[in-house]
């Protein structure tokens, strides 16, 4: 670290190792729980879309179950969810603390949010397109992948973007209850030890990360609106 930076934030410099560990913990939480959130939320969002009334695989039972469960988990505040899920988390990952302990509640916290985002993105696909595909003899899978998901790509990118950003927020909250990561670093080494520079750096790092996610998301969404991601040559 250059000298001037060291002078600017002396405490960060002396806890550099801890800071690095925290960053890596946050990234691990973010990536692993993000992966599962997008997977599960995607599947549930598609389920809601195809099983709703007038959907291509109308099924009131499945729809009601997914819809209600999503609503229930959406309405529980994350801090409560963290505590509520402790026994379940232990069962799945063997521990309720550290990064591994945080993954399960993070997935439960973000999936309902992402599910609704996906549902809304797919609802934005003109039913006329689905109808045209049906009329051409397209099957269910064809309609889901080639019409719904493909046409909704820009909206899905926006959904991934804001879910990612809110997931970053959730990881810092999980940190507050012992999961480690940048959130707990800010509290334990910044706030508790009265090192304001540590808190400031945490804020800046999060700000940079969030802006980065947001601008990549925006650019990709814009690029894929009424357009394929890559240039097509014929």
């Amino acid at each position: 670290m250059p000298e001037w930076l060291e002078n600017l934030m002396p405490n960060v410099a002396s806890y550099m190792d801890k800071f690095g560990e925290s960053l890596s913990a946050t990234f691990q939480m973010f990536l692993i729980s993000g992966l599962f959130t997008f997977l599960f939320g995607g599947v549930f969002g598609i389920l809601l879309t195809v099983t709703r009334r007038g959907g291509i695989m109308e099924n009131p039972v499945i729809y009601q179950i997914v819809d209600k469960v999503t609503n229930i988990f959406r309405s529980i505040p994350f801090i409560i969810l963290l505590i509520f899920l402790i026994p379940f988390t232990r069962l799945i990952t063997g521990t309720a603390i550290g990064v591994r302990g945080a993954i399960v509640p993070l997935i439960f916290g973000a999936t309902p949010f992402f599910t609704r985002q996906v549902e809304a993105a797919l609802a934005g696909v003109d039913p006329g397109k689905v109808e045209a595909a049906t009329a051409m003899g397209s099957g269910k899978a064809g309609i889901i992948f080639r019409v719904y998901l493909h046409e909704a790509v820009p909206e899905l990118i926006r959904a991934v973007t804001i879910t990612s950003i809110s997931l970053i927020g959730l990881t810092t909250m999980a940190g507050a209850v012992g999961a480690g990561g940048i959130g707990s670093f800010a509290i334990n080494y910044g706030q508790n030890l009265h090192h304001q520079d540590i808190v400031n750096v945490c804020v800046i790092v999060l700000l940079i990360f969030v802006s980065l996610v947001q601008s990549i998301g925006n650019a990709l969404a814009k690029r894929t609106t009424n357009h394929s991601l890559f240039q097509k040559k014929y």
């Binding site: 003109d126 397109k129 109808e131 045209a132 009329a135 493909h150 046409e151 894929t224 009424n226 394929s228």
Partner: peptide, 18 residues
């Protein structure tokens, strides 16, 4: 359905496809 083509008032083309 494959043996019957259909066209619509609002075209219903896939917007993200060439």
């Amino acid at each position: 359905r494959s043996g019957i083509g259909m066209i619509f008032q609002h075209f219903n083309l896939l917007e993200r496809n060439t």
